[in-house]
């Protein structure tokens, strides 16, 4: 238990260093763009593939489980939309990105730590925590909401595609369901969650990598620790944010 408090304390000390005044704005801007490419753009493919299949599967399962003359078929489109917006495209995509992006960040920074690259930056008088971690946090927080919107759109399209391809329901019914009782606030809720999860993924993974010690085995362990920690923290914050924002 004490260990957890030690980690929380060290995490906040690290964040204090991360958010101290940057050395030179122009350098950071360049790094943010680079990180957007490696953390964000490179995740579009994975997000799109998972979203299209999950959208299709949700639609199929809804069709099978809501087989009743008393339930309108359009409810399938409504349920798919709500599932994608409220939970899948923010929370589940964040968990997937915790695996891809989180392990990437932890192993990159962990490798820099054990190969003394971070020491080299410190010797130059660079605030290594800010230089390495801040651009990743900014890039993730700015870019992941676009991934969420993309995931929502592609997931809904996947549902429409499967209904049209298999004939399990009439696509027009699906579209009617999509347009039923749409609340724009759901999108805002989803984007707020995504921004918070993006911060968690970037900062917690960076923390795990930054304090890696020893050899290459430690980098692997830091990477695993990052994915596990991010997943747990995301689930906790999912609950907290849902309570605050929806209830």
């Amino acid at each position: 238990m004490l260990k957890i408090f030690e980690h929380i304390g060290r995490y906040f000390i690290l964040m204090g260093k991360v958010f101290s005044r940057p050395e030179k704005g122009a350098i950071y801007r360049r790094r943010i763009i680079r990180e957007m490419e490696s953390l964000g753009l490179d995740s579009i493919g994975l997000t799109a593939i998972i979203s299209v299949f999950i959208g299709a599967v949700i639609t199929l399962q809804m069709c099978i489980n809501l087989e009743s003359p008393f339930i309108p078929r359009s409810l399938v489109g409504y349920a798919t939309r709500e599932t994608m917006i409220l939970e899948f495209s923010s929370t589940v995509v964040a968990l997937i990105l915790a695996g891809k992006v989180g392990s990437n960040i932890a192993s990159e920074i962990g490798t820099m730590r054990i190969t003394e690259q971070i020491d080299a930056l410190e010797i130059m008088g660079v605030n290594s925590a800010s230089y390495l971690i801040l651009p990743k946090i900014v890039a993730a927080v700015c870019f992941f909401p676009f991934l969420t919107i993309l995931s929502i759109l592609i997931g809904i399209l996947g549902g429409w595609g499967i209904s049209a391809a298999t004939g399990i329901m009439i696509p027009d019914d699906y579209v009617e369901g999509l347009l039923t009782d749409f609340k724009p606030y759901s999108i805002v809720y989803s984007l707020i969650k995504t921004a918070v999860f993006a911060y968690i993924i970037a900062s917690v993974s960076a923390y795990c990598g930054y304090y890696a010690r020893g050899n290459s085995l430690e980098v692997g362990r830091a990477s695993t620790r990052a994915v596990v920690s991010c997943s747990i923290v995301i689930m906790i914050f999912n609950l907290i944010l849902t309570q605050i924002l929806l209830i």
Binding site: T115, E116, Q117, D119, A120, E122, M124
Partner: peptide, 14 residues
């Protein structure tokens, strides 16, 4: 530190 240069064992290049 701006007056210090350091060469690490493995080079420590980024």
């Amino acid at each position: 530190r701006k007056d210090i240069g350091m060469i690490f064992q493995g080079g420590a290049l980024l």
